[in-house]
């Protein structure tokens, strides 16, 4: 309507012409934008696969988005944010076994000979047996264990707080590193954690489930229970613990999952 006065010196376009012109422009822009959107989508679907390394199994832009999203949501992490706990009666009696990767191949695993090996500086390692770990203050937690697949279950675990363990063995230098890596004794399953989550007050090295020593299929003799992460990070049967400033290798991050997988 405003155009009418401006163009009065020339032959004013008829109303019909104006309608046509505006429609032409609008639909032109609309189709251009749609084409752009489809092209963008095609590009994303066919974008290069990420180079296999610490992470793998997805496309470069998607991995970049996961990593950036991690950085954003890590701002909200706090040791004061605790997972909800429940009374012991609510804990499941039949605890779900979802995966045995890293422990099922070890048919002749002998828990008596087991020692946790903690890799510290200069290639040295501490080898700690279960009795030493059990002599530390015990912490129990009954909480809703969450799997990345979407299921969850209230479970009852007992063990030593990972932060208590690290303090007891005076791993002060190691705690200053950014990441902790854990592996099964056979090295077939492995995870990485940022130190923040490892030091969370509800993160346990668990040796009991429902008040009894861990069964093999639940990760005997010692496993990780980390409520601020999905189940994929709750490694069964810890063999070695290591510390680094770069991301340790992580089984499911190599298969296209988010490295962080935090809750």
């Amino acid at each position: 309507m405003e155009n009418k006065s401006k163009e009065s010196s020339k032959i004013p376009p008829t109303v019909d012409q104006k309608i046509k012109r505006r429609n032409f422009i609008s639909f032109g822009v609309f189709f251009a934008a749609s084409t752009g959107a489809i092209a963008g989508w095609e590009w994303l679907l066919k974008s290069p696969k990420e180079k296999f390394g610490i992470t793998g199994g997805t496309r470069v832009p998607l991995r970049r988005a996961l990593n950036k999203t991690e950085l954003f949501f890590r701002n909200f992490f706090s040791n004061n944010h605790l997972v909800k706990t429940y009374p012991a009666e609510m804990a499941a009696k039949q605890v779900r076994i979802n995966s045995l990767i890293g422990i099922e191949e070890d048919l002749h695993f002998d828990p008596q000979k087991w020692k946790l090996s903690v890799l510290i500086k200069n290639g040295e390692s501490l080898n700690i047996n279960l009795e030493e770990i059990k002599s530390l203050p015990k912490t129990e937690i009954i909480y809703d264990f969450k799997c990345v697949e979407g299921w969850d279950q209230i479970q009852h675990w007992g063990g030593v707080k990972l932060s208590d363990f690290l303090n007891h063995f005076k791993l002060d230098e190691e705690i200053k590193k950014q990441y902790m890596g854990l592996q099964t004794p056979n090295g077939k399953y492995y995870i990485g954690l940022e130190m923040q989550s490892a030091l969370h007050p509800q993160t346990l090295l668990a040796y009991e489930m429902n008040g009894k020593p861990l069964a093999n299929e639940h990760g005997a003799p010692l496993r990780l229970i980390i409520p601020v992460k999905y189940g994929i990070k709750n490694l069964k049967r810890i063999g070695t613990m290591s510390f680094s400033n770069s991301r340790p290798k992580d089984y499911w991050a190599e298969h296209g999952y988010d490295y962080y997988s935090g809750l």
Partner: peptide, 14 residues
């Protein structure tokens, strides 16, 4: 396609 689904979901949620 869970991992793929999560990757897309957590990009396009933004």
């Amino acid at each position: 396609r869970l991992a793929e689904g999560m990757a897309f979901h957590f990009l396009f949620m933004w």
